[in-house]
Amino acid sequence: MKTAVYILSRLAQSIFALLCIVTITFFLARLAPGGPFLEEKAVPAHLMAQMNAKYGFDKPLPVQYALYLSRLVRGDLGPSFGNKGFSVNEVIAEGFPVSLFLGIIGLIIALIIGVPVGVFAAAKRNTATDYGLMTLAMIGICLPTFVIAPLLGEIFALKLGWFDVALWEDSTAWFLGALTLGLYYSAYIARLTRGSMLDVLSQDFIRTAKAKGVAPAKVLFKHAFRGGITPVVAYLGPALAGLIGGSFVVETVFGLPGLGQHFIKAATNRDYWLINGTVTVFAILILFMNFLVDVIQAWLDPRTRSRD
């Protein structure tokens, strides 16, 4: 019962947050100077007026906002001005799966690299190996993706010829994109894993196991690993949201048709409905992931429930 109440209140919070985000985005986008129809070559005043009338931008802003909300509730995100002939729904339906795909592969790469490195570093605590690995991870965190991505492209595509350097169709460039994201997040995951493994390894039951003469490897993987990995699991949700939302750089560097590119281009083009649409999708994604993590944690740990 308590859990159900908690989940419902978290859900209500998420929906309220979403409404705030949608509203703020709508008005912020409209406050920015310039509009979707402004071009380098002058658009005659009568044409500008015609276009504004055609797309309903001549109405008072509150009316436009009300219309926007009523469409949003029906799931209609409106047309995209930067991609005439496509609705924002279509643009997102094409772009989101690409970002999701990149994000999931990136996350898998991050786990494959990050978890073993973290466990290994924890096992070799305070040795040269540990310091070396953690320094590497620190560098990984500090190197922004816009440095790693072109570097990977230059080495693995142009020098070695193992992958294609750009494009989506019949191209292997997406792997370099996912690898960039994966490497970046593997550094976080390695540090996180090491920290929580050390936590667990210092606990009494581990000492008992060791004292009983259990083989060190068995202690590490059978006894410590389960507890040590829990924080990483909790981190997966936000990490995936971050991976998907943060893929703008790799999408640009490798020419991949994900949602990240639209996110930025919509803003620079003043493509109002696309701005609102992409922000809404990312907001839902992040809110949902956080909601999910909270629910799972509440389910795992009754203490969390009472805290709120």
Partner: peptide, 18 residues
């Protein structure tokens, strides 16, 4: 037609034989 609006990506794509 490939819409690559990052000029550096495009140059690499050319060098890569794409």
């Amino acid at each position: 037609f490939y819409p690559i609006d990052n000029a550096f990506t495009e140059e690499k794509a050319f060098r890569n034989g794409l």
